[in-house]
Design a binder for these strands. Structure first.
Ligand SMILES: [Zn+2]
Ligand SMILES: [Zn+2]
Ligand SMILES: [Zn+2]
Ligand SMILES: [Zn+2]
Lengths: 251, 251
DNA sequence: TCCCGTTCAACCTGTTCA
DNA sequence: TGAACAGGTTGAACGGGA
């Protein structure tokens, strides 16, 4: 004789409505995912549901989708509570809440990831590239017919993930070029993957964008006011900061 | 008291399975379209179908989709015959038959719409354009990257509709140009719409194609053997025939 | 972790097309 | 008659607040 031993957490739980396996309590009772969805959809419906056998259907895993009338009847019989179905108003309220929370997270991330370009001093006679100029350069990129949607101020640049969103609509070839460029950037060759990510995240993104633009337009001026020539990047690990220099930018 | 009078042809016919309105006899019995499809889908299935009420379902318009078991049972009960469901082999055979018939029609149409270019004499020192040359020119059109699929012999050119099929895969701009060209062709300005259609159908199609090609490639040679220069069209209404002339075609 | 709602691909049905 | 299509339903997987 073998004792039937099972730990509580491993116990297979059975949907009280249809006998399928369930994972959690839904609307007050242990049910499967499908009966959960079913009850949410029909539990509040006033409309009378039709039964093919005058209310005599047996509900199990195979027959549960055949008769909504008998399935719903069984749901109520085994104790599912329609009061636990959220109202439209509550759903709307919760959607707003999620929206607000996301915005909070976003602003917090943006603040943590921004670079203060005002702290970067000139170096070697090369002009410091201000984020304002970057933004202006990027705004000029409409000639490539894609939406970058960059809103940068002098002291704050949106985080890399968000910038990269703008690339999703680009053609594959251009994205590939950008990725290759990020691999071959100055300062990228001798550092590990995590540091590369940090570079991308904290500043080299701008370098990547400018170089990619330059490569893509094959040295042709963006318009009469711009002439991209060359640039270089320095990563200051002590200050956890990226310095971006750009030579010969006229505007 | 009102007599209930109905002509036979206006009589509403009822699906014997579910009571929905039907239009015709299917698999031997008057049924609706949905029961027809249902029987075709399940009539030959060996697999046992499940019933939620142990075979006691009532089948009507509302409940017919709830229990396949009882619906199929009723289909057989009212006399639908599964022998009338075509086997896969018969379906394949019929597909082949349809294909062959279409080909026959096509060849017949082609014969009826062809022009005998051998009856067209030289005119004014301009070389007569043989359909063979047209075909060769069109075969050279692969540089535009579309399938024209023209197979013309000296005495026979495929009908216009079929040629036009080849244009479906073209870009809109090119199609628009072709249409505009057909409007402005020699001999098209002083005739009515029906005659224009006749012209297109019986001969000017070639003219249109050549002119469009010429326009599209902007006088650039198709390859070293071809140099399109100019051409003109004359419509002979007495003989219901189109004359196509083309100057300076080298090959 | 629990337990809501949301999403979406797969499936099914009935109508229309050929 | 079957094929193809469009529209509806289902349920597994997921996201998020508490
Ligand atoms: Zn269930
Ligand atoms: Zn029922
Ligand atoms: Zn029917
Ligand atoms: Zn049944």
């Amino acid at each position: 004789m073998v004792a039937h031993i099972m730990s509580y957490t491993n116990m297979v739980k059975i949907c009280v409505v249809c006998g399928d396996k369930g994972r959690a309590r839904n609307f007050g009772v242990f049910t499967c995912e499908s009966c959960k969805s079913f009850f949410r959809r029909y539990g509040l419906k006033e409309q009378r549901l039709i039964c093919p056998s005058n209310g005599k259907c047996d509900i199990n895993v195979m027959t549960r989708r055949m008769c909504r009338n008998c399935r719903l009847k069984k749901c109520f019989a085994v104790g599912l509570k329609k009061e636990l179905i959220r109202s439209d108003e509550e759903n709307d309220y919760r959607k707003e809440l999620i929206k607000e929370n996301k915005l909070k997270h976003k602003l917090s991330d943006e603040y943590n990831n921004c670079i203060d370009f005002s702290t970067i001093s000139d170096y070697n006679g090369i002009n410091q590239l201000e984020s304002k100029r970057i933004a202006e350069l990027l705004n000029a990129s409409v000639i490539f017919n894609y939406p970058l949607n960059i809103n940068a101020s002098i002291h704050r640049i949106k985080n890399f993930d968000e910038m990269f969103l703008g690339f999703r609509d680009l053609n594959d070839e251009f994205v590939k070029q950008i990725i290759n460029f990020s691999k071959s950037l100055n300062g990228f060759n001798n550092i590990c993957a995590d540091d590369k990510y940090a570079l991308m995240r904290y500043g080299a993104r701008d370098q990547v964008l400018i170089r990619s633009l330059k490569y893509y337009i094959k040295e042709i001026n963006v318009d009469n006011n711009y002439a991209l020539q060359s640039s270089s990047t320095q990563f200051d690990s002590n200050n956890n900061c990226i310095y971006i220099y750009c030579k010969d930018i006229y505007y």
